[in-house]
């Protein structure tokens, strides 16, 4: 907290909240749904922050806010220490670029590959047609695609090739931060590893900072330097990757880790003891959002929401680890 005087983080979220109003049923009344609840997060330069959580936890909403696709209800986003609102959208687009999950839906089917990759240059009016063509060719080479794909269309390509095109489009403006939203979950296993390797190489080559959103902890563990675990709109634990497997503190993180099925025969399927249902974000449980599924839950957990407490080099939000409440104990 005190080191804010140093170089500002590449990206910082301060108390971001995003609330939607949803209508239930045909004549139901409108009710608020808080997708992201007072989230603060820092992303240092060159870091790969993995953001994990189940569907509905708010990780994609967070990504949309970071890309400027949705305004937060409250709180601010800082890029290099400057608040996002102050910067205009074009300036933001130069610094933060997305790579989406589904390479079949993220490329406009009516445009040629050259048009898709050069679109950022054209929108920002960078260079003339000839230099844009050259930039596209160079960028395609960087992501491992031959120049002859320039005149082809997305429908002619395989999923892995399309994802390379999406990466080329994201990187052509030389952004500092790339938001990868499940970039490999729609791909085959053998293609997934190619894309993960490519993302790793590009990070080293261009000094990129990644926010890597995924539900696959094995993938996150492989690529990320730090991992933030999200549950019901809150970051419940924020821990360095080195500590993730041996020093994760939150029971939810531990359950997630247990659910990772490594290809080791004979171990069987783990029992996560999570119960089943992810809570409905419209009716979040009282106190700690995780308490109905938590095997350590006590009366305190349903009564009072835990506060973030420092843990290793990050933080955790759990009564078990809060020195002031831990005395009420687990058992």
């Amino acid at each position: 907290m005190l080191d804010a005087a140093k170089t500002p983080p590449a990206l910082e979220l301060r108390n971001i909240t995003k609330t939607y109003t949803v209508k239930q049923g045909l004549i139901g009344k409108r009710r608020p749904l808080t997708a992201v609840r007072d989230v603060s997060l820092k992303l240092e330069k060159g870091e790969v922050l993995g953001l994990v959580g189940e569907s509905g936890c708010g990780k994609s909403t967070l990504a949309k806010i970071l890309l400027g696709l949705e305004p937060p209800t409250s709180g601010e986003v800082l890029v290099d220490g400057q608040a996002l609102g102050v910067q205009d959208r074009l300036a933001l687009a130069r610094r933060i670029q997305p790579i989406f999950q589904d390479p079949y839906s993220s490329l406009n089917p009516r445009k040629s590959i050259a048009d898709i990759v050069s679109l950022p240059l054209r929108i920002h009016g960078i260079g003339d047609a000839a230099s844009q063509q050259k930039a596209v060719r160079d960028m395609l080479d960087v992501v491992g695609l031959p120049p002859r794909v320039m005149n082809t269309f997305p429908s002619q390509m395989s999923g892995g090739q399309r994802q390379r095109v999406a990466i080329a489009r994201a990187l052509i403006m030389k952004p500092e931060i790339v938001i990868c939203d499940e970039p490999t979950s729609a791909l085959d296993v053998s293609v997934q590893s190619q894309i993960l390797n490519l993302l790793g190489d590009l990070r080293a080559e261009f000094g990129l900072t990644y926010l890597f959103i995924s539900h696959n902890l094995a993938v996150v563990e492989h690529l990320a330097t730090r991992v933030a675990v999200m549950y019901l709109g809150r970051i419940v634990e924020d821990v360095s990757s080195d500590d993730l497997f041996d020093a994760s503190a939150h029971p939810y993180t531990q359950a997630l880790l247990q659910s990772v099925l490594t290809p080791e025969p004979g171990l069987g399927v783990p029992d996560t003891q999570l119960g089943m249902a992810y809570p409905n974000p419209i009716d979040p449980p009282s106190g700690c959002g995780f308490h109905p599924r938590c095997r350590h839950a006590t009366n305190l957990c349903s009564a009072q929401a835990p506060r973030p407490v420092p843990h290793r080099d990050g933080h955790v939000e759990c009564h078990l680890h809060d020195p002031e409440t831990a005395m009420f104990g687990t058992d």
Binding site: V189, Q192, S193, G200, L217, L223, T262
Partner: peptide, 25 residues
Amino acid sequence: RGLLRCIPQPGKSRRGEPLGTIRGI
């Protein structure tokens, strides 16, 4: 063998090191 080398395995594959790949389609 190629498939098994492609998947990251926590604790086994080293972080940041390239995963195995199967070239082509």
